[in-house]
Design a protein around this nucleic acid. Structure first.
Length: 747
DNA sequence: CAGCCTCGAGTTCC
DNA sequence: CTCGAGGCTG
């Protein structure tokens, strides 16, 4: 049937064939996106996909809900449903040195205001995949991978085949989420690879990949034949909590029937933790499964909740990683890439070598000083080496991910090897590439003239946190940028794509990779993004120093694109005066060293003139900009430069013309301190300063360091000094710590 | 003004 | 994931 012409298929044959294709394409997609090796070439994939589309066109009624043709271009289906983690699955802060563990303990105790030693659990860090299991009324209901921490993949059916994971719990609360690590033992891994090889199937590079590949099988019967195991070590949502310590919770998980790691131990203070680390490290080879370090957690759960979280990691845990695996290989070439901001980044092309179970053929070389081994003044740089093409280099994967060069074997250096000369012209557009004083990167000055920068900025524009247009990813940007019939050269072009296509002679749908359906979907996806939040728009522009968070800050502060532009435009003279003053100050420093008085005097003079000519409303707009939350002079100047650049501005205006911009949502919060600016002063007795700040912010308050007319509330402990006086002077309400606690807990 | 924390921008492999 | 640097805190 596979070879039968589409025109000759009966309806039943077509249905079966679509099912077969769905399976094959699904597998290819999973393999392509996951950690597994690709199962087919792109060309083979295209042939199957085209056949799938042809059949669908002939038998529209048979089209499957999971049809691959619904995925546009190379954006392919995921194969698994998505599960939202009610409680985020976080990553851990990493430490490599013993001293970092003492630092961690110091930080924890300082934050809590404790001087005496505290208890930590220490357990091996299993090198597998984290998993969250949800039980309702004792029954396993859902299993999800970590994903990005917020949203994971639904692998419930596969997880049901893992014997270490109970399908039912006895005596458990109504809702229990258990978290832990899926892994494969060394023995099982070796046996699996032997079976795979015997059957002519691909073998896995390491147990971690084997576990990942097995868990992400679309067919649970395959997972069932893979020997996966599971250690429980944490939890998410619990309808009822039964312990007040980490160790107690682990014992509780064990009593529910989960495997917990036998090397989990309670330690007091850093020396004890390090001793257990060394003990685990010594046993590493005999454990029978891969571990990549030791995890320490504050044992007291009440303290854990006081410590809380930073943006991506808890403050109460740290992973102490084992030293990375190293491998020697030859450096074949050094290429220089150009990034979105014009940064020239050197990349090492290596003779392929296996490091930690993965074949590495590229490695980052950071910047030109890193390759030279010293900065532009000849001072040696920490960890950097004089690296030359042809050298034998030692490679490792930092954090087990990014390949880096650890060392160079000077004894094996060829006598003819010469130091790498870093280009001073952009390799992509030939513009001059300059290094700002004190900057470690050299940047192409070509701006949007440089094709590399233009492409990278477009890729950023359509990326996930920005416009996130389904069907236009990095690949499609490359394609459309080079396209002569239907080009995308700037963001606005994306929104004129459909009308240009309609008017064009060569229609998009007639070309490779785009069928009728995918074109329709693409237009729908683009239209859907004509309405966009202000924050996403600002972020998408890809201005230097303006990332996702800064974009949100700007959005929240100015509420509309017009208001933002008006403020930035108004602040322009003040911005220029600020820069002039900066340059004058720098010149002063240089002048002091080199006695270049004349140049300095000129700059100071220019700065003075610039400052004198700043209208007061401009100065006010500038002041508001740089005092807005999270915005400083560097970011403000970058923003100002971008909007004052006529070409850039015109390009942005062309884009805006196609958009409906949504103002930021006002955070609906009932807390009595929401939106208020509060200042803590004096000593606090029931909590530390840091805790107080975090709690206040969680309730929507803004915590400031100094009292001003804008302050709404001052919380004064004993020993409050000048800030209490300021509060009186500005007539700001002042309360003590107890009143504050009553206020926020009463809420 | 120094040190801490968070953010931005860079990169690899599959 | 990590480095460097911007912005904030003490």
């Amino acid at each position: 049937m596979e070879d039968k012409q589409v025109a000759d298929l009966t309806e039943d044959e077509a249905r079966d064939e679509l099912a077969r294709l769905a399976l094959l394409l699904g597998e290819a997609n999973t393999a392509y996106h996951g950690q597994d090796a690709p199962v087919m070439t792109d060309a083979e994939y295209d042939v199957l996909k085209r056949r799938n589309t042809e059949i669908e066109v002939r038998f529209p009624a048979l089209k499957r809900a999971d049809s691959a043709s619904d995925q546009v271009g190379a954006a392919v289906s995921e194969g698994f449903g998505k599960i939202y983690h009610e409680i985020r699955m976080l990553s851990l802060e990493n430490a490599f040195e013993d001293t970092e563990i003492a630092d961690f303990d110091d930080r924890v105790r300082r934050y809590l205001g404790l001087t005496k030693a505290i208890f930590y659990t220490a357990e091996p860090k299993i090198d597998g995949l984290s998993l969250s299991l949800r039980y309702e009324n004792g029954m396993l209901k859902q299993a999800a991978t970590r994903g990005d921490g917020n949203i994971g993949e639904n692998v419930t059916e596969n997880v049901r085949t893992i014997t270490d994971i109970p399908k039912a719990l006895i005596g458990a609360p109504a809702i229990v989420e258990v978290r832990g690590e899926v892994y494969m033992s060394h023995v099982d891994f070796a046996a699996l690879n032997e079976r795979q090889a015997a059957a002519g199937d691909k073998t896995f590079a390491n147990p971690r990949n084997a576990a990942a590949g097995s868990l992400r099988q679309l067919d649970p019967t395959i997972t069932a034949r893979r020997p996966l195991r599971f250690f429980a070590y944490s939890w998410g949502v619990l309808s009822e909590f039964l312990s007040d310590t980490q160790m107690g919770a682990i014992d509780w998980l064990k009593s529910l029937g989960f495997q917990t790691n036998p090397l989990t131990k309670l330690c007091v203070g850093p020396e004890d933790m390090l001793a257990h680390y060394r003990s685990i490290k010594a046993q590493r080879a005999t454990l029978g499964y891969d571990i990549d370090g030791v995890v320490y957690k504050v044992n007291d759960l009440a303290l854990q909740s006081r410590l809380g979280f930073r943006s991506t990691t808890p403050r109460w845990a740290i992973a102490h990683k084992f030293p990375a695996e190293l491998a020697w290989t030859r450096l074949l070439a050094i290429d220089v890439q150009v990034g979105r901001t014009g940064a020239l980044s050197p990349v090492a092309r290596l003779h392929p070598v296996t490091v930690g179970g993965v074949v590495v053929s590229n490695a980052t070389l950071h910047n030109e000083d890193y390759i030279a081994g010293h900065d532009s003044n000849g001072n040696p740089i920490r960890d950097a080496k004089d690296i030359r093409i042809g050298d034998w280099v030692q490679v490792y994967r930092a954090g087990d991910v990014i390949p880096k060069i650890a060392d160079v074997d000077l004894a094996r250096r060829l006598p003819e090897a010469i130091p790498f000369s870093f280009p001073h012209l952009c390799p992509e557009c030939g513009s001059e590439a300059v290094r700002e004083e004190g900057d470690s990167v050299r940047r192409c000055t070509g701006g949007l003239i440089c094709p590399a920068q233009a492409i990278e900025r477009l890729k950023h524009f359509v990326s996930r946190g920005a416009f996130d247009i389904e069907g236009i990813g990095a690949k499609q940007i490359e394609m459309f940028f080079a396209d002569s019939a239907l080009p995308i050269r700037e963001p606005a072009d994306i929104f004129t794509l459909e009308s240009r296509d309609a008017a064009g002679l060569i229609r998009l749908k007639n070309r490779d990779g785009f069928g009728e359906k995918s074109v329709t979907n693409l237009w729908a996806a683009i239209r859907a993004r004509r309405t966009i939040s202000l924050a996403r728009l600002i972020f998408a522009l890809g201005l230097r120093h303006v990332g996702e968070v800064a974009a949100q800050d700007l959005s929240r502060h100015y509420q509309s694109w017009e208001a933002l532009c008006a403020a930035v435009d108004l602040a322009r003279p003040a911005a220029l005066a600020h820069r002039a003053a900066d340059e004058a100050e720098n010149a002063e420093r240089v002048a002091a060293a080199l006695e270049k008085r004349r140049a300095q005097i000129t700059l100071v003079h220019t700065a003075a003139i610039a400052a004198a000519n700043v209208p007061s409303d401009s100065a006010a707009a500038w002041h508001e900009l740089i005092t807005a939350d999270g915005i400083g002079p560097t970011l403000a100047l970058s923003l100002s430069d971008a909007l004052a650049n006529s070409e850039e501005r015109a390009s942005i205006d062309r884009l805006i013309a196609h958009l409906t911009i949504l103002p930021p949502e006002i955070r609906a919060t009932q807390s009595p301190v929401a939106g208020k600016t509060v200042v803590f002063t004096g000593s606090l007795e029931k909590m530390t300063r840091a805790e107080a700040k975090v709690r206040a912010e969680a309730l929507g308050a803004k915590v400031s360091g100094s009292v001003s007319a804008k302050t709404d509330l001052v919380i004064a402990g004993p020993g409050a000094g000048s800030k209490a006086k300021d509060a009186e002077r500005y007539g700001v309400e002042m309360i003590d710590e107890d009143a504050w606690l009553a206020l926020i807990t009463g809420a």
